[in-house]
Design a protein around this nucleic acid. Structure first.
Length: 573
DNA sequence: GCCGTTTTCGGCCCGACTGTTTTCAGTCG
């Protein structure tokens, strides 16, 4: 059982409690516990099954919820949920996802009209029963009707890569209107999460109404969902929701802090403020009615006796105590990356030629790059050993006439379904760098897939495991793996784990953090298939920063001689 | 239901916008 499933069960208990008008603080307790479970790097179910682990050591989980989780893991059902479902039909949970409907209105429908599902609600709407309840005017009814119609198509999250394009367009548009003092994008976008539910834009300016009016007229806006004096929400033609918040310059830092979140991080911060007899909100830090800071984020954190915390760390996973003790790690930066260790040319499935890729990489200032075209198994795109050797000969020739940049002779080699490698050792030994990956047989069992990666790690000529979990955000989930076993084996063998900056964004940040705790080291790459994608290194860096990695965890932050010395093949020669 | 540098009892993050109202509840982030 995955952490997300446990978290969902806890969240459902919170929803059911809310509909049944239970203790609101008990509702919050379940939500806090759900968040703790969802954010936990290790599988809670396995920890519970192991018997050694005390759930109540986790924040927000006490004796009661620990029992509920244990029961869920052991029996597949949660007593508290069973009990609630006896009085609150679970079909009501679907109603909560309809915009404009919260627990109060859902309870009202249930109590007054015996509505137990979306279908029931649809029926009640058509028969005019909702309108007769009172408190539901024409606008609200229309909103609910729309929500019922779209109830089966849940809100989509978009990949960070795509979100950047929308963000840039809107920021440029607003800036072009003039009169803006500062503008930035906050929310999960700024925390660099791999997917974004909506965009949060914060502006400081002197004339808020102008900016808000201009925002609503952005070309791609199809609906202005709300518009007030200081904030506005619109929907773009893609369905993406964009929130704008306008504040005075003296509040910009506080607003950025507030809207960057995460919610769990902010709640923790406000509790710290309370403990100091202060109040924290989106306008600043207040002592009584007096604002003591708010212009910059540094000042806001400083007022709470905390070091400024990088947005990627703001998930309430232990960063706040570190900030208090001045012990935050120095996260890796894009500028520290010295090389790119996976890219393709038109010799396999890339779009650009070898010289074009090399020239584009040189323009980015790298000291070295690995050309990693595919091995034979990758049908249509694979290179035979003879073709690889011909490419490597060409690379040797190009390297001779080149200064500043060294091209590494490499290959992205498939780990076959059988667990065998797609190329013989004598070919691998001729390469400067080999990244092994799985592309086929993704439906195999956890045991089989884990064994395949272990077999690759076992080969001394495999320098790195590429996109280790096979996911593609958001379309394909990771294949099943015993990741702790893989990470431990990789750490022991000196085999690097790749963080892939394409839309795979693989490793996921939580697994990268877990792998670091096992002693693994990493390599960051773009997996570029054209020259434009060479700039995807920023996404690999985003994942690394969310995993709290520093330059010393990542081999390709080192200059070429140190990089080569750090490869396990350096020991094998 | 959880939690404790003021607490084992009595608290529990904070504010904007909408729609329906004439002062506010509900929703949302």
């Amino acid at each position: 059982m995955q952490n997300t499933e446990i978290a969902r069960a806890l969240g459902e208990v919170a929803d059911l409690l809310e509909i049944s008008a239970g203790n609101p603080f008990k509702v919050r307790a379940y939500r806090n516990a759900a968040r703790t479970v969802a954010d936990h790097p290790d599988p809670i179910a396995e920890l519970v099954a192991g018997g050694e682990f005390d759930l109540t050591e986790l924040p927000g989980i006490g004796g009661g919820i620990a029992k509920e989780i244990t029961a869920l893991v052991q029996t597949g059902s949660m007593p508290q949920r069973q009990q609630l479902v006896a009085t609150v039909p679970p079909g009501l949970l679907d109603l909560l996802r309809i915009p404009g409907l919260g627990p109060k209105r859902v309870k009202l429908f249930h109590d007054q009209l015996k509505v137990n599902s979306v279908a029931d609600l649809k029926d009640a709407l058509e028969k005019g029963k909702i309108a007769k309840l009172g408190g539901f005017g024409p606008k609200l009814l229309e909103k609910i009707r729309e929500g019922v119609a779209g109830a089966d198509t849940g809100p989509q999250r978009i990949v960070l890569h795509e979100a950047e394009q929308y963000a840039r367009a809107i920021v440029e548009y607003l800036k072009a209107g003039g009169g803006i003092d500062a503008i930035d994008v906050a929310g999960s976008f700024r925390r660099r999460k791999e997917t974004i539910g909506d965009l949060d834009i914060v502006v400081s300016c002197v004339n808020a109404p102008d900016v808000i009016a201009r925002f609503g007229k952005f070309g791609d806006v199809t609906q202005v969902a709300s518009q007030g004096d200081t904030r506005s929400t619109v929907r773009l033609s893609s369905g993406l929701q964009v929130d704008l918040r306008v504040v005075e310059p003296s509040c910009f830092g506080a607003a950025m802090q507030y809207f960057t979140g995460s919610q769990a991080h902010n709640i923790e911060l406000r509790k710290i403020a309370q403990g100091k007899k202060l109040k924290l909100n989106e306008y600043g830090v207040f002592r009584g009615s007096k604002c003591i800071s708010g212009r910059t984020e540094e000042a806001v954190y400083g007022a709470l006796d905390l070091d400024w915390i990088p947005p990627e760390m703001r998930e309430n996973r232990g960063e706040i105590p570190l900030a208090k003790e001045h012990k935050l790690p120095k996260l890796v930066t894009l500028e520290e990356m010295r090389g790119d260790l996976q890219m393709h040319t038109d010799a396999s499935d890339g779009k650009a030629t070898l010289p074009e890729m090399i020239e584009a990489a040189r323009a980015l200032g790298y000291g070295y790059v690995a050309i990693t075209d595919h091995s034979p198994r990758t049908s249509m795109a694979g290179q035979t050993p003879a073709e690889l050797r011909a490419q490597w000969k060409e690379i040797d020739r190009l390297n001779k006439g080149m200064r500043g940049l060294r091209v590494l002779k490499s290959v992205e080699m498939d780990i076959l379904e059988s667990g065998k490698l797609d190329l013989p050792d004598d070919v691998l030994a001729e390469a400067d760098y080999v990244v092994a990956t799985i592309h086929y047989g993704l439906k195999q069992s956890e045991r089989q897939l884990t064994d395949r990666l272990l077999a690759a790690i076992d080969n001394p000529w495999v320098d790195a495991i590429g996109h280790p979990t096979g996911r593609i955000v958001p379309v394909r989930p990771s294949y099943p793996l015993d990741f702790d076993v893989v990470a431990t084996a990789a750490a022991k063998a000196g085999c690097l784990l790749e963080i892939n900056g394409s839309e795979r964004m693989d490793l996921p940040d939580t697994l990268a953090a877990a792998a670091k705790s096992h002693g693994a080291r990493f390599v960051l790459s773009t997996d570029a298939h054209n020259t434009r994608e060479l700039r995807f290194m920023r996404f690999a860096v985003a994942v690394a920063r969310r995993a709290w990695l520093t330059a010393s965890d990542i081999l390709n932050t080192r200059p070429l001689p140190d990089f080569l010395k750090g490869l396990r093949r350096g020991r094998n020669r």
